[in-house]
Amino acid sequence: MPSYPQHSPNRPILVIGSLNMDLVMRTPRVPQGGETLFGHDFATLPGGKGANQALACARLGGHVAMVGRIGDDNFGQVLKSGLARDGVHVSQITVTGGVTSGVAMILVEDIGQNRILISAGANGQVTAGDIDGVAAQIEQAAMLVVQLEVPLPAVLAAIKHAHAAGVPVLLNPAPAAALPDTLWPMVDLLVPNESEATLLSGVDVKDTASAAEAAAVLRARGVRTVLITLGAQGVLICDAQGVRRLPAQKVKAVDTTAAGDTFVGGLAVGLTEGMSLDDAAALGQAASAICVTRIGAQPSIPWRSELTPTERARS
């Protein structure tokens, strides 16, 4: 397992990824084809996996900067200013003329499950050239955090820059997509959920045993550490020390939006603070347990002060 540099003003966690405005509506259930249902509690909320993860890092105590694109619209300004207000460095979030900011249409069932449809907008304009332009920031980062809501060439360029500089890479492969074989050995931490692990590994992940099998397949490709998030079943960790499962806290979930992003933020912050892998994962779990009890993406992400003293100070 690689070491993770302690975070400092000169070595932030660097998140490269998406910014979306989430248009959220709650519903008793998902409508069938051709069916119209009455929903309730519509809200317009900032989100996007990249922005969510950057915000989670900041609220959980990390020093974090973000790279991404927004459109020249009001949604974009709201997204950027919201991150800045909560402590994310946003100087590398650029405005793209002639396109909208990313938008996500989210249906949240009353049982807490969500269904999401995304229009990439400016997120789809992030290029490998953009990444080359921030190569110096990548090389000076304590950790690189990336997802798959911006074009894959940009993600691959970021990972290559980080790997060449010895910067740890955390990849949240969401939404799931086929990835090149050359990518895997450059990934220090791979954090998929069950469906993403299933697509990437070819193993049908439905319980702890199948998750362990999928994680072993992914590690065999060269990934150093795999953490598969299993919802109410917790998190399965597979690394050079073996396989173990960290159970989830029992809470009443009302909205799972951003739960995985909150976990990623806690994990990244914990590792760059010098925590063990298991304690950093537990920090992410504790934050996610709060997240799922609230509505929306970014509004649901907790601050470090909201965790218990033990959860805040794992070492």
Rank of each mutant, 00 (worst) to 15 (best):
F263I: 08
W184K: 13
D181S: 08
V126A: 08
Q137R: 15
A197S: 11
G87Q: 05
A289K: 06
V169T: 06
Q125G: 06
E109M: 07
G265A: 10
A154P: 00
K160V: 14
G62N: 03
R115I: 08
K252F: 12
E213I: 08
V292F: 04
L283I: 04
V108H: 03
A174F: 07
L283Y: 02
L271C: 14
L148D: 07
A176L: 08
A84Q: 15
L283P: 00
A259W: 05
T127E: 00
A286D: 09
A84C: 05
M21Q: 13
R304C: 05
R304W: 05
E194A: 12
G82C: 00
L218V: 02
A232G: 11
Q233R: 14
I111V: 11
A84G: 15
G34W: 02
S315L: 14
V226R: 00
V205Q: 04
H7V: 13
P309N: 09
R219T: 05
P31V: 03
R115A: 15
Q147F: 02
V226N: 00
V264L: 09
G129I: 06
P12S: 07
I93T: 09
G82T: 03
I295L: 11
K80D: 02
A174Q: 04
P153F: 01
T100P: 11
N52T: 06
V95A: 04
Q233S: 15
V292P: 05
E139S: 15
L200G: 00
T257S: 05
P185M: 10
E149Q: 03
L271N: 10
G166C: 08
Q92Y: 11
V235C: 14
I295F: 11
A158L: 06
D22R: 15
T182W: 07
I228Q: 03
T256P: 07
L117Q: 09
H89D: 15
G129K: 11
M21A: 01
V99P: 07
D204Q: 12
R29T: 11
L83G: 05
G82W: 03
I301N: 00
G17N: 01
L189K: 01
A197I: 03
E311D: 15
M143S: 10
A51S: 15
T44E: 15
G47L: 06
L190H: 04
G102L: 07
A157R: 14
A120T: 13
D22A: 13
A122S: 09
L218A: 09
P153R: 01
L107M: 10
I237K: 01
T198H: 02
M1V: 12
V90I: 11
D261Q: 06
G260H: 13
I111T: 10
I13C: 04
V145T: 04
L179H: 08
Y4T: 03
R314L: 15
A174G: 06
A253D: 02
T310H: 12
H63T: 14
W303F: 13
Q113P: 01
N123W: 08
P151Q: 07
Q113E: 15
G270N: 03
E35W: 02
R29N: 11
A209V: 03
P2H: 13
Q92R: 15
G166W: 12
C57I: 02
R304Y: 06
S3C: 10
D86K: 06
L117W: 05
D181N: 11
